[in-house]
Design a protein around this nucleic acid. Sequence first.
DNA 1: TTGTTTTGGGAATGATTGTTCCCAAAAGAT
DNA 2: ATCTTTTGGGAACAATCATTCCCAAAACAA
Lengths: 192, 192
Amino acid sequence: MRTKEFNEDEALEKAMQLFWLKGYNGTSMQDLLDGLGLSRSTLYRAYIDKHSLFLKALGHYQQFSSSEIKKVINEGDTAKETVKKLLEFIAEVVVQDQQHKGCFMLNSEIELSLHDKVVHDMVVNSDQDIEDVFYHVLTKGQKRGEISKAEDARAMAKFFLNTAKGIRATAKSNPDKKVFKDIIALAIKALN
Amino acid sequence: MRTKEFNEDEALEKAMQLFWLKGYNGTSMQDLLDGLGLSRSTLYRAYIDKHSLFLKALGHYQQFSSSEIKKVINEGDTAKETVKKLLEFIAEVVVQDQQHKGCFMLNSEIELSLHDKVVHDMVVNSDQDIEDVFYHVLTKGQKRGEISKAEDARAMAKFFLNTAKGIRATAKSNPDKKVFKDIIALAIKALN
DNA sequence: TTGTTTTGGGAATGATTGTTCCCAAAAGAT
DNA sequence: ATCTTTTGGGAACAATCATTCCCAAAACAA
């Protein structure tokens, strides 16, 4: 038996970068062949077709970015500080990227969720995932008495998710760290 | 001389709807020929090529949507109410659309602004335009003493623009009027 | 009528799309 | 050595892509 020569994870990572940068329709199979450095035969045998490869790449992104965000949950002494850290982290990620690719999940939502049921469901789940992170921190803060119980924690979680999506959208054409910092400071006022 | 038979504005409107629904790369010239009901010769003579037609359609959208928003400036008795009306209007527009096309400018930002300088500039200008609407209302409110001068009006304007973009993004996969209402109510708290 | 201009039909372009297939080379296992 | 499996090269596919072109029909002005 011949051992596998190409690293599947490495190839998937490269595919993700390409789809992330140029979108689904903007990325051709030729782009992928060149980018991954694989032959047609190998690529099709490994990933079936373009659409399957895309879904796998998007799933890979979701797994990674979700776990990264959850690392931030334990940062900050108070719930309010943690919410701020979460938003700052989300902003930092898109600002740091020299290519301004934005958020791959948001990009896919805009480009495909209307006509691709699978992508649509992944987007909804991804949003719910982030919303739940905020919700978890907020309810904990309410129990501790750090955050008023006057406002519904679920509504606040949706609000912060919305702020995050705004930042991620703007990151495509106007990634400005200082502006995002101001936006986050104002968003945090919703906790007063 | 033979009089022009096809209505240019009507055709442009149809082209805008198509690009809006399926994106630039997702819309083929054949889609446009079928959708506009024009012959190849006529379409190319009138609009030069696909990219030019797209830019014209996006410009048409920008003109229309900008003027619609500015109609709301005079609604509401206080600045705070006007800001709320502005956000509610932006949410209402995307929620009403049965097709969930979202915001054409935001869609184009995500799909093209990275690789298309003209689109990028249009997006930046469009964002600035909306930001300025908020800024105008906010500074007026500050002069009237309705809004605290502790916060920078420019920062607040960027914050509300960000909230609007979040709503417009989410409208693609999750247009929920009630959720948007909650989000807007919390965003308004930034004015306290 | 003649002339001018607009439109549509349709053929033709060359490039690119995603995908399938065959076969030889490579690399390890036996 | 043979066997098995993985990989790459490259041809081939039909479909679609954006675009150009020619010409006849249509509609108005003179």
